[in-house]
Design a protein around this nucleic acid. Structure first.
Lengths: 342, 342
DNA sequence: TGTTAGCACTCAGGAAGGTAGAGTGCTAAC
DNA sequence: GTTAGCACTCTACCTTCCTGAGTGCTAACA
């Protein structure tokens, strides 16, 4: 049984209707709304075939049909009209990102917020990893009595900082001396190469008290391990509640939990994105606790190179066409702004 | 009609039962479970009085009684046994905060997380405002080509930082010069006094190109306005879903919205806390969209002075005794750690 | 061979009615 | 002031019935 043109047309119409109404779609409805030029009976025959093929299913015997995950997949891969101009959105996005260009972090936050606002789904953003690229600058700044602010900057201008607590006060000249030493030895190195061994080697040449050196190395090591963690922003979680499939509190809870901490949804976003935009539908998400849930993600770039990920989480009954268009649009705009800066 | 000892006993028992079961409590249940020494009929008479007084109410004619907001208020003010030792929790908290003492920000995050974990409600934490106290140190660090990292530290070691974007590159010596100048002129001043006027005055003595000076002042001004915004952490929102009164999605949405952005719940936390722990019950929260919702908050201290707020949001049917004990416990532990540091 | 009208069948969801159980308020007796 | 007893009320739950939507099948048609 082949998926002929009419079957495609029917599947497309069915998905369009179901996305809009969230109600199972019957043969009569399809004929009436979408001018298919044949009778409901014919549609029924075709729908029966589509069901055998696994693209749609019946919630119960006397109901209409709803798309299956496989149906959405077919739609996204073969039927979806990719292009959508979104001219109003472009202006709005540019306007709202331009405000924030003074401030890197606000730019990420704003991108994420815009995406959730415009899509009415939940937006997720993985910030660029500092560990990529080489160490351009390392600074140690005394703060208060026992605290030192450590700042690492890589060659794309990404920045990592931590306030570290020293067991005993360290005077400023010494700190400066340490900073210069670190800058000399570490500057220009690939961030991934900054290991404990290297730090210990350097610390040997220090004139400080031994215990202090040891702590400094410990702290640096700790800071370096910290900066390899991805930071993630999530925005618009309450948008979930507007979706009828998430009237069930348990389901929302599962998704929200999966977005927190070490949750599985988080992992999907953090995993290296393959080139281009990815759509992950329903059970394609490798986690049993989240259901009825799809994701659209893409990577944004700094100077042409993938820096981080941005995307949305919504119900499988998602307007994929619009979702993809929006995610790509915001990713492009963000990439442009980020690349302008340098 | 006075609230005699027996009425108090009954109200206390009723609240205890309702908090545990979330079901309206009848007279027979009270007698059976709480050994009140009188018959259900007597309890009924007393309950009728309590209802007239507004402390309890009936959801419908043939149901038991539930506490009203006024009832909870009376309970919190007069009946609640304040003391709870929580020895297990103390150890757990200390252990988990100690890990994070190296890192200010992690300490706040961890406090908030511990509070939501242990209370099973939603925890909220307002970070200390840097604007309190005087400016101890100001640093300008070049980052990438056109970016400058601005760091302000106040005399309690609180830190504020922003990456600022310059329209044209600024060379390091100039930046250093500007930094020294700012440190000289501004160091030791009360943070609240740092106004645009002051900045402009200082900038007059700068040897830079005029437009660059103007931008520097703009950026500083912007940064200063930013650092007067309170930062707030929210943790454990999904704990809401476990409460039967929040089976209604709409209600959870309202609360979560009220905790975001400029939401009214946020405002309650940010408002200056009066001395000690505050319990805000149901309609005492000045916002109509959140219902069935109470808050417990207190301030934590740095060197004896109130620095920020920490607390929880939960249903009015909250275990107030435990909530207050936990909030105070964590606030104390956090205060201790923060004060140790300096 | 593909399409269609007609028809019997199925099932969810809502309305109506009936029952059990929990809990009250009232009254009269202690 | 306290209590037992009783009539009353109301919700929650179950059952039954009905309607409407939608299907699958069959036979006729082009």
């Amino acid at each position: 049984m082949s998926v002929n043109e009419r079957k495609k047309q029917i599947l497309q119409a069915l998905i369009k209707d179901y996305v809009a109404t969230a109600e199972p779609v019957g043969s009569r409805t399809l004929v009436k709304k979408y001018h298919l030029g044949v009778s409901p009976a014919t549609i029924r025959n075709e729908m029966s075939d589509l069901e055998d093929l696994g693209y749609i299913r019946q919630p119960h015997a006397s109901a209409g049909r709803v798309p299956s995950d496989k149906g959405y997949r077919f739609y996204v891969d073969n039927l979806m009209d990719k292009e959508q101009p979104l001219p109003k959105e472009i202006g709005y996005i540019r306007e709202n990102l331009k405000n924030k260009i003074q401030e890197m972090d606000a730019l990420f936050q704003q991108s994420c917020q815009l995406l959730s606002q415009l899509s009415h789904y939940t937006a997720v953003m993985v910030k660029p990893r500092i560990k990529k690229g080489s160490l351009e600058r390392i600074s140690l700044i005394p703060v208060g009595e026992n605290q030192v602010l450590l700042i690492l900057v890589n060659d794309s201008g990404m920045l990592f900082h931590r306030i570290l607590e020293m067991v005993v006060p360290v005077d400023e000249p010494r700190l400066k001396q340490f900073e210069v030493l670190l800058q000399q030895k570490l500057g220009g190195l690939d961030m991934e190469q900054l290991t404990r061994n290297l730090l210990e080697e350097i610390s040997l040449s220090m004139s400080w008290h031994q215990s202090l050196v040891k702590q400094a190395v410990d702290l640096m090591d700790y800071a370096l391990s910290q900066c390899s963690h991805e930071q993630m922003l999530v925005n618009g979680t309450t948008n979930m509640f507007a979706q009828p499939e998430f009237k069930d509190v348990e389901r929302v809870k599962n998704i929200m939990d999966a977005l927190e901490g070490e949750g599985p949804l988080r992992k999907v976003f953090i995993n290296k994105t393959t080139e281009g935009t990815q759509v992950i539908i329903g059970d394609e998400i490798p986690d049993a606790t989240v259901s009825c849930c799809s994701m659209v993600k893409t990577s944004y770039k700094v100077k042409g190179e993938a820096a981080g990920t941005i995307g949305i989480v919504g119900p499988t009954r998602m307007d994929y066409s619009k979702a993809v268009a929006l995610v790509e649009l915001i990713s492009e705009q963000l990439s442009e702004m980020l690349s302008q800066k340098k």
